[in-house]
């Protein structure tokens, strides 16, 4: 456990040692604010909740998280530091988990910095704060899902741009599979269970069900097992491709 913490600490410090942290956080806050107020008609709706705010999170993450995750492994392989890292007395899963957790904690920090939004709704009315807490939790879990995908795509290539594009595409598949428009394409001609299977892999479906305030264990389990799957894939790919 100790070594995971050491890796987490170094990676996290790395975000803040470069402009990445500032750029990511500022853009995240600006976009989530802009989406909520302009596109989400936050004021016009006249309701004290954060639904418009959270509704945009999947889309924000879709683009921003790959930008954060693309360097996780690609850079390590390009610079050759992976050779130094993996010849330290550490296991592959400790490294994979440590790096992932650092990125996740960082996303959590960015998410936590949206707290003025929460304060604002509480000043404007009486929102259901339980729902908001659940939504934050759901958003964080979903961010973990995007990050784990990004980690795996970053392991596939030394090229960060390719890693970025791959993560956006795979992330998009996981978002869209719950989108009504996409589901309509399938409905009618595919058996119901396939339709269910497709939508059950959707980030949207699970995120929406959590952000209604119902903390269903199945939704949490979905994200946790999705993260575990992609991290396992990351470790396998690194093991295969580290020599290149």
């Amino acid at each position: 456990m100790g070594r995971i913490k050491v890796i987490l600490k170094r990676e996290l410090a790395g975000y803040f040692a470069t402009p990445i942290a500032a750029v990511f956080i500022v853009i995240f806050l600006l976009l989530s604010g802009a989406f909520t107020f302009y596109l989400g008609n936050f004021f016009v709706r006249g309701q004290a909740d954060l639904i418009p705010f959270f509704d945009f999170h999947p889309w924000l993450y879709l683009v921003l998280i790959p930008a954060l995750a693309m360097r996780l492994w690609a850079e390590e392989r390009k610079e050759g530091t992976i050779e130094m890292l993996l010849t330290l007395p550490v296991t592959m899963w400790e490294v994979v988990v440590g790096k992932f957790l650092a990125a996740w904690v960082f996303t959590g920090i960015a998410l936590a910095l949206t707290f003025p939004m929460w304060i604002t709704v509480n000043m404007l009315g009486n929102p259901d704060n339980g729902v908001i807490v659940a939504s934050y939790l759901g958003s964080l879990l979903m961010a973990g899902g995007f990050l784990a995908i990004g980690s795996c795509m970053s392991a596939l290539t030394k090229n960060q741009v390719i890693a970025f594009i791959l993560s956006v595409v795979v992330g998009l598949a996981f978002v869209l599979s719950g989108f009504p428009m996409i589901l309509n394409l399938f409905s009618g001609w595919t058996p119901h269970f396939i339709l269910n299977a497709v939508s059950s892999f959707s980030f949207l479906t699970h995120f929406h069900s959590i952000s209604k305030g119902v903390l269903d264990l199945r939704d949490i389990f979905f994200f946790v097992s999705l993260i575990a799957f992609w991290l396992f894939a990351t470790a396998t790919i690194i093991d295969m491709k580290k020599a290149e």
């Binding site: 100790g2 070594r3 050491v6 890796i7 170094r10 410090a13 790395g14 040692a17 470069t18 610079e79 050759g80 530091t81 050779e83 130094m84 010849t87 330290l88 007395p89 550490v90």
Partner: peptide, 26 residues
């Protein structure tokens, strides 16, 4: 082990880097 080309994390300082290696080694 000193790998070929002596790779190291470019955005760290030598002092932070060596501390990291030491911590990894317990």
């Amino acid at each position: 082990y000193l790998p070929e080309g002596a790779p190291a994390y470019q955005d760290m300082t030598p002092s932070a880097f060596l501390t990291f290696i030491g911590e990894m080694r317990g």
